[in-house]
Design a protein around this nucleic acid. Structure first.
Lengths: 226, 226
DNA sequence: CATAAATGATAGCTTTACTATCTTTGTAAA
DNA sequence: TTTACAAAGATAGTAAAGCTATCATTTATG
């Protein structure tokens, strides 16, 4: 699936739009790679500056702090995923197949592709979401960040998902909670599978088949129409 | 439910056992309160030292760093919860009621009680789990920390939960994943309800009744025996 | 070609996250 | 009742993180 898309980013996320310059794109791209490599806690703008052959001060011209950079990348991913869902559901009419499709898109580890070398790559972004995604909102800044609409992409995705659930079974009482829960579970189970495998029933060295089966069963049994 | 219990803590968590001294207990108690107040990111041992009227250096004699203190409190909570489960399931034989009971114990916001004034309180610990719980393991130290068995209390709780699921339906394929998922969801939904309510279907100013209903339906529909 | 904007280079400041050392205090065995 | 020894206090110091400021130098743009 090739998507040549321009994702509109919330301009509260940056001081200078990173998409507008070579340096900006390098900051975001290598930011993603470096956070994945050393973890968000150990990640600093100084280290990133070295990777990108620039200075700390230059990075601060693009992003207020490392948290904003993190949110930038994570929300980019949510928007990207929503595009994928949009494309993936194109021409699909059966509500059941729609739900199966969205679950796969959410939970399946994306395959590495060649393109988009100069900006964010889906596979790396997916890893970032698994490891650092919840750190975007588990912060005392959540009130302010929410007012700045930083979480809109995530909310939109949940809303789309919830709409499909409602379409399948209009009487189900908790479509939003179910949607956000399944998204969260997909990532936490993926994390546990890699790092705390006894919390799952998935063999470490295996694809996401079982995880998807688990999620599909969970979803369809709870929204089943009796 | 009164529990006068002594929770055995993993001694890799501390340098000096905080339960053995007045200062140690104050550090842990006010550590919990202060993290809840200002958030883990802004929390420092220096600030805690001021709260407790001691010095930074003294706190470092008990805990290697703030992450260990966090894990200490969080794992204390998991152990505490497992005791509650143990007591709560005492004399219960019906597997269905067992599962209902454990869900309630996991998801229900504990009521404030008077006791345990000098150490950790359940209500505060519950808030900490919601806000900071996942930060215990979403770290590059997870491999080492896991070897030190820091996550054993959490694993044990999940294992107990999974065992009840297996008892109810021995044929269900994903008892561990389901157990850990429900625990995680309980907290993330609780967080969303407070902070990003559009991700849930629960009114902000209300008890956990709907959340528990959501979880119960989720659990029992997916493990239903056809 | 002029000029504005972006970047580089450098400096500096406050806070965090520790470690070290030395002194005082409180407690428990000799 | 001394003695001794561990816990805590007091103080200092260090490297890194997390910024902000300034000025010089490139690089785009009209």
């Amino acid at each position: 699936m090739d998507l040549d898309l321009r994702i509109k980013m919330n301009d509260r996320l940056f001081l200078r739009n990173p998409e507008d310059s070579v340096l900006g794109k390098k900051i975001v791209k290598h930011g993603l790679l470096l956070i994945n490599k050393i973890g968000f806690e150990d990640f600093t703008f100084k280290k990133l500056a070295q990777e990108v052959n620039t200075t700390e001060a230059s990075i601060y011209r693009y992003f207020e702090n490392k948290h904003r950079l993190l949110v930038y990348i994570i929300t980019w991913y949510w928007r990207f995923l929503e595009y994928k869902v949009l494309i993936g559901l194109n021409n699909v009419t059966d509500p059941k197949i729609k739900l199966q499709t969205i679950i796969k898109l959410i939970a399946e580890e994306p395959k590495p592709t060649q393109q988009q070398n100069d900006f964010l790559t889906e596979t790396e972004a997916y890893q970032l979401v698994i490891w650092e995604g919840s750190k975007t909102y588990l912060t005392r800044n959540i009130g302010k960040d929410n007012k700045d609409r930083l979480f809109k992409p995530y909310k939109d995705l949940c809303e789309s998902f919830a709409a499909l659930i409602k379409e399948y079974n209009p009487k189900y009482k908790y479509p939003h909670s179910l949607a956000s829960s399944i998204i969260e579970i997909a990532h936490s189970q993926n994390f546990f599978k890699q790092n705390l495998p006894s919390l799952t029933d998935f063999p470490k060295q295996q694809d996401d088949k079982k995880l998807i089966d688990f999620l599909l069963t969970l979803l369809f049994s709870t929204i089943a129409i009796n």
